[in-house]
Amino acid sequence: MEPPPPRRRASPPAIPDELFEEILLRLPPDDPACLLRASLVCKAWSHTVSSPRFRRRLHELHRTPPVLGVLHNWADERIPRFIHTTASSFSLAAPVWRTWRALDCRHRRALFFPQEFGGPEMLLWDSITGAQQRIPVPAAFKSDDFPTAAVFCAADGCDHGDCFGGPFRVVFFFTVEVDEGTHATSACIYLSETGACGELTSAHSNREFLEFRESYSVLVDRSALYFMLDGNADTASVVQFDLASHDLTVFGLPDTYYDFAYSLVLVEDGGIGVIQCLNTRLKLWRREASAEVGWVLNRVMCLENFLPVDALLHAQHKVQVVGFAEEANVIFVDTVAGLFTIELLSGHVRKVCSDPGVRIFGS
């Protein structure tokens, strides 16, 4: 008598697409390669990962986006233009530093200025798609001006989880000579919808020549942009540009004794603040709405509690805050031991690059 044929195992029940989506949503947000690998498994997963619904839900679940990397302007072939800061080691094909200098990066867009000053155009680079777009430079820019500009999403009510290809603004800041020996701080806005710049807004005439620092901008509550102005010990200051009224306001720093030791940040309530770098300490100052009150000391960070010892033991190489990622609330700290990120809320530290002196202009 022949044995009965073996029973065929029943196929496991198909996993609903909704469950796949829930699993993929919980992959580590600071390791984007996980989602890339998941998208290559099958067409269904690729469709899920690339859908606007998935990107929106991913943003809603994790809220604070990770800092994927930084752009720098250091002329060193050993270091890629884009330095990743995540668990996945990947590199984006950013515009080369020989031709373009990074100025600003926000809402997945990065802004570059020609290395040869006086160029008629800036370059806008989409860090997700790699698409590039030329932006006309205002006529008031001169070849000897140091360019300062900021880019941001202009879509109403956008959470920046899926605003690729949407409207944006570029705000240009510079100083112009009103008459002999007198200068004014000026600004104008480029609108992507019209492809043109608006009229100049000017304020703050001064006998001393003021110029913008080679640094990043900070956007507060989609209502105001902030930049740093250079000058001597009594003119170093912060510029506020109201995006609704186009008013420019210039105000001083908490303590001008340590000239140029300040970097812009956001504080806990979403207002503007500055970090004052004092050797192994960082003082965080908050700007009060009342002009009479001005700056209030908010917090002091002892870097010995955050950075390794070898990052602080060098008399000739000062610790500097060289960048700030707004949405992630992360500062970039340049030390003799390399570049580090510090999350201001949690205090979590990550080493980004071993080479000191990298100047960060976007994140």
Rank of each mutant, 00 (worst) to 15 (best):
R9W: 10
P12T: 04
D17I: 00
I23M: 14
L24N: 09
L25T: 08
R26Y: 07
D30F: 15
L35G: 00
S39G: 07
L40T: 04
W45I: 03
W45P: 00
T48Y: 02
R55L: 09
R63K: 13
P66C: 01
V70C: 13
L71M: 15
L71A: 12
E77D: 09
I79P: 03
I79G: 01
T86R: 00
S89V: 07
S89A: 13
A93W: 07
P95G: 01
P95Q: 00
W100I: 14
H107L: 03
R108P: 03
F113M: 05
G119F: 12
G130N: 02
Q133P: 02
P136L: 04
V137S: 06
S143Y: 10
A155K: 14
D159M: 11
D162K: 07
C163V: 04
F164Q: 07
G166A: 14
P167R: 03
R169V: 06
T194E: 07
T201V: 13
S205A: 15
Y216W: 11
S217E: 04
V218T: 09
F227G: 08
G231S: 01
T235W: 09
F241H: 10
L243E: 02
A244P: 01
A244N: 15
V250A: 06
L253M: 02
P254M: 06
D255P: 06
D255R: 01
T256D: 11
Y258L: 08
Y258N: 09
D259G: 13
S263F: 10
L264I: 02
V265T: 15
E268Q: 08
G273K: 08
G273S: 11
N279Q: 14
R281F: 14
R287E: 13
W295N: 09
R299N: 10
V300A: 05
C302P: 09
L303I: 03
L307K: 05
H317R: 03
A325L: 09
A328H: 00
V330G: 02
V333H: 01
G338R: 01
G338N: 01
F340C: 00
E343H: 04
G347H: 09
K351C: 08
V358M: 01
F361D: 01
